[in-house]
Amino acid sequence: MQERICEAMIETVINLFKKPLCIDTTHSIGQDGGEELEIQRLGKDLQQEITRIFDKSFAIREVDCGSDNAAEIELGNLSSAYYDVERFGITFVASPRHADALMVTGAVTRAMADALIKTYEATPNPKIVIAVGDDACTGGIWKGSYAVLGGVEAVIPVDLKIPGNPPRPIEIIGSLLTLLRTQQRS
Protein backbone atom coordinates (compact mmCIF):
# COMPACT_ATOMS: atom_id res chain seq x y z
CA MET A 1 0.00 0.00 0.00
CA GLN A 2 2.68 2.42 1.12
CA GLU A 3 4.74 1.50 -1.91
CA ARG A 4 1.86 2.35 -4.21
CA ILE A 5 1.43 5.76 -2.61
CA CYS A 6 5.13 6.31 -2.95
CA GLU A 7 5.03 5.40 -6.62
CA ALA A 8 2.07 7.68 -7.22
CA MET A 9 3.93 10.53 -5.56
CA ILE A 10 7.03 9.93 -7.62
CA GLU A 11 4.91 9.82 -10.76
CA THR A 12 3.26 13.12 -9.85
CA VAL A 13 6.63 14.76 -9.37
CA ILE A 14 7.93 13.36 -12.65
CA ASN A 15 4.82 14.62 -14.45
CA LEU A 16 5.36 18.03 -12.93
CA PHE A 17 8.77 18.20 -14.54
CA LYS A 18 7.52 16.77 -17.81
CA LYS A 19 5.12 19.69 -18.17
CA PRO A 20 7.00 22.20 -20.27
CA LEU A 21 7.82 25.36 -18.39
CA CYS A 22 7.63 27.37 -21.53
CA ILE A 23 5.61 26.38 -24.54
CA ASP A 24 7.40 26.87 -27.84
CA THR A 25 5.61 29.98 -29.02
CA THR A 26 7.57 30.54 -32.21
CA HIS A 27 4.94 28.77 -34.29
CA SER A 28 2.19 31.12 -33.22
CA ILE A 29 3.74 34.55 -33.64
CA GLY A 30 4.41 36.48 -36.78
CA GLN A 31 2.00 34.43 -38.88
CA ASP A 32 3.99 34.71 -42.09
CA GLY A 33 7.31 34.39 -40.27
CA GLY A 34 8.70 37.16 -42.48
CA GLU A 35 9.35 39.56 -39.66
CA GLU A 36 11.14 36.97 -37.56
CA LEU A 37 13.51 36.17 -40.41
CA GLU A 38 14.10 39.88 -40.86
CA ILE A 39 14.94 40.27 -37.16
CA GLN A 40 17.38 37.37 -37.38
CA ARG A 41 19.03 38.73 -40.51
CA LEU A 42 19.42 42.25 -39.09
CA GLY A 43 20.52 40.82 -35.75
CA LYS A 44 23.26 38.75 -37.28
CA ASP A 45 24.72 41.77 -39.07
CA LEU A 46 24.33 43.81 -35.92
CA GLN A 47 26.20 41.19 -33.93
CA GLN A 48 29.10 41.34 -36.40
CA GLU A 49 29.34 45.12 -36.07
CA ILE A 50 29.09 44.93 -32.28
CA THR A 51 31.88 42.36 -32.20
CA ARG A 52 33.99 44.56 -34.48
CA ILE A 53 33.55 47.79 -32.52
CA PHE A 54 32.75 46.85 -28.93
CA ASP A 55 34.21 43.37 -28.42
CA LYS A 56 30.86 41.56 -28.39
CA SER A 57 28.70 43.69 -26.12
CA PHE A 58 27.03 47.03 -26.68
CA ALA A 59 25.61 48.60 -23.50
CA ILE A 60 22.79 51.14 -23.74
CA ARG A 61 21.37 53.39 -21.05
CA GLU A 62 17.87 54.70 -21.72
CA VAL A 63 16.73 58.15 -20.51
CA ASP A 64 13.14 59.36 -20.79
CA CYS A 65 13.14 63.16 -20.99
CA GLY A 66 9.55 63.86 -21.95
CA SER A 67 8.21 60.92 -23.88
CA ASP A 68 4.61 59.70 -23.70
CA ASN A 69 5.95 56.25 -22.62
CA ALA A 70 5.26 54.56 -25.99
CA ALA A 71 8.95 54.70 -26.94
CA GLU A 72 9.88 53.22 -23.53
CA ILE A 73 7.49 50.35 -24.15
CA GLU A 74 9.07 49.63 -27.54
CA LEU A 75 12.58 49.75 -26.09
CA GLY A 76 11.41 47.39 -23.36
CA ASN A 77 9.93 45.12 -26.04
CA LEU A 78 13.39 44.83 -27.63
CA SER A 79 14.42 42.73 -24.62
CA SER A 80 11.28 40.56 -24.78
CA ALA A 81 11.47 36.97 -25.95
CA TYR A 82 10.18 37.97 -29.40
CA TYR A 83 12.99 40.37 -30.36
CA ASP A 84 15.49 39.29 -27.69
CA VAL A 85 18.24 41.69 -28.76
CA GLU A 86 20.47 40.43 -25.98
CA ARG A 87 21.36 37.48 -28.22
CA PHE A 88 22.92 39.99 -30.65
CA GLY A 89 25.01 41.61 -27.90
CA ILE A 90 22.81 44.56 -26.96
CA THR A 91 22.15 45.09 -23.25
CA PHE A 92 20.19 47.81 -21.50
CA VAL A 93 22.17 48.76 -18.41
CA ALA A 94 21.09 50.36 -15.15
CA SER A 95 23.82 52.98 -14.87
CA PRO A 96 25.14 55.51 -17.40
CA ARG A 97 28.62 54.65 -16.11
CA HIS A 98 28.28 51.20 -17.67
CA ALA A 99 26.98 52.49 -20.99
CA ASP A 100 28.49 52.82 -24.47
CA ALA A 101 25.45 54.73 -25.68
CA LEU A 102 22.51 56.77 -24.42
CA MET A 103 19.08 56.33 -25.94
CA VAL A 104 17.07 59.45 -25.23
CA THR A 105 13.31 59.72 -25.78
CA GLY A 106 10.94 62.68 -25.71
CA ALA A 107 11.19 66.39 -26.38
CA VAL A 108 13.38 67.39 -23.45
CA THR A 109 11.27 69.03 -20.75
CA ARG A 110 12.60 71.89 -18.66
CA ALA A 111 12.39 69.72 -15.54
CA MET A 112 14.46 66.92 -17.13
CA ALA A 113 17.18 68.97 -18.86
CA ASP A 114 19.40 68.98 -15.79
CA ALA A 115 19.02 65.22 -15.21
CA LEU A 116 19.85 64.57 -18.88
CA ILE A 117 23.03 66.64 -18.72
CA LYS A 118 24.12 64.83 -15.54
CA THR A 119 23.43 61.46 -17.14
CA TYR A 120 25.38 62.49 -20.25
CA GLU A 121 28.32 63.63 -18.15
CA ALA A 122 28.29 60.38 -16.18
CA THR A 123 28.60 58.32 -19.37
CA PRO A 124 32.25 57.50 -20.14
CA ASN A 125 33.85 58.67 -23.40
CA PRO A 126 33.67 57.79 -26.24
CA LYS A 127 29.87 57.74 -26.19
CA ILE A 128 27.05 57.64 -28.70
CA VAL A 129 23.76 59.49 -28.25
CA ILE A 130 20.69 58.18 -30.03
CA ALA A 131 17.43 60.15 -30.13
CA VAL A 132 14.46 57.77 -30.35
CA GLY A 133 11.10 58.98 -31.65
CA ASP A 134 9.81 62.09 -33.40
CA ASP A 135 9.70 64.10 -30.16
CA ALA A 136 13.35 63.37 -29.41
CA CYS A 137 14.42 64.07 -33.01
CA THR A 138 12.73 67.44 -33.52
CA GLY A 139 10.45 68.21 -30.60
CA GLY A 140 7.57 66.70 -32.58
CA ILE A 141 4.07 67.63 -31.51
CA TRP A 142 5.42 69.53 -28.46
CA LYS A 143 7.43 72.01 -30.50
CA GLY A 144 6.57 75.53 -29.38
CA SER A 145 5.43 74.61 -25.88
CA TYR A 146 6.79 76.65 -22.97
CA ALA A 147 7.62 73.41 -21.14
CA VAL A 148 9.99 71.77 -23.64
CA LEU A 149 13.39 72.73 -24.98
CA GLY A 150 12.90 70.93 -28.29
CA GLY A 151 14.72 67.87 -29.58
CA VAL A 152 17.52 66.19 -27.63
CA GLU A 153 19.98 68.16 -29.78
CA ALA A 154 18.99 71.31 -27.93
CA VAL A 155 20.65 69.93 -24.80
CA ILE A 156 23.34 67.38 -25.74
CA PRO A 157 25.03 66.40 -29.04
CA VAL A 158 23.18 63.66 -30.94
CA ASP A 159 24.78 61.01 -33.22
CA LEU A 160 21.70 59.23 -34.54
CA LYS A 161 18.04 60.07 -34.87
CA ILE A 162 15.44 57.32 -35.16
CA PRO A 163 12.14 58.95 -36.18
CA GLY A 164 8.73 57.41 -35.58
CA ASN A 165 5.75 57.85 -33.31
CA PRO A 166 7.24 55.73 -31.79
CA PRO A 167 9.58 53.74 -34.11
CA ARG A 168 8.76 50.02 -34.29
CA PRO A 169 11.26 47.72 -32.55
CA ILE A 170 12.44 46.37 -35.90
CA GLU A 171 13.05 49.91 -37.13
CA ILE A 172 15.16 50.59 -34.04
CA ILE A 173 17.24 47.47 -34.74
CA GLY A 174 17.69 48.49 -38.40
CA SER A 175 18.71 52.05 -37.48
CA LEU A 176 21.25 50.79 -34.95
CA LEU A 177 22.81 48.66 -37.65
CA THR A 178 23.10 51.65 -39.98
CA LEU A 179 24.72 53.67 -37.21
CA LEU A 180 27.25 51.03 -36.19
CA ARG A 181 28.32 50.46 -39.79
CA THR A 182 29.63 54.03 -39.86
CA GLN A 183 31.49 53.80 -36.55
CA GLN A 184 35.21 53.20 -36.21
CA ARG A 185 36.69 51.04 -33.51
CA SER A 186 38.36 53.34 -31.02
Binding site: T109, A111, A115, G144, S145, A147
Partner: peptide
Protein backbone atom coordinates in the same frame (compact mmCIF):
# COMPACT_ATOMS: atom_id res chain seq x y z
CA UNK B 1 6.26 64.02 -10.26
CA UNK B 2 6.09 66.70 -12.92
CA UNK B 3 9.34 65.81 -14.69
CA UNK B 4 7.39 65.03 -17.87
CA UNK B 5 5.37 68.24 -17.84
CA UNK B 6 5.10 69.13 -21.52
CA UNK B 7 2.37 71.78 -21.32
CA UNK B 8 -0.41 69.64 -22.84
CA UNK B 9 -3.28 71.88 -21.77
CA UNK B 10 -1.66 75.12 -22.91
CA UNK B 11 -0.59 73.56 -26.21
Amino acid sequence: LGFLHRGVEKL
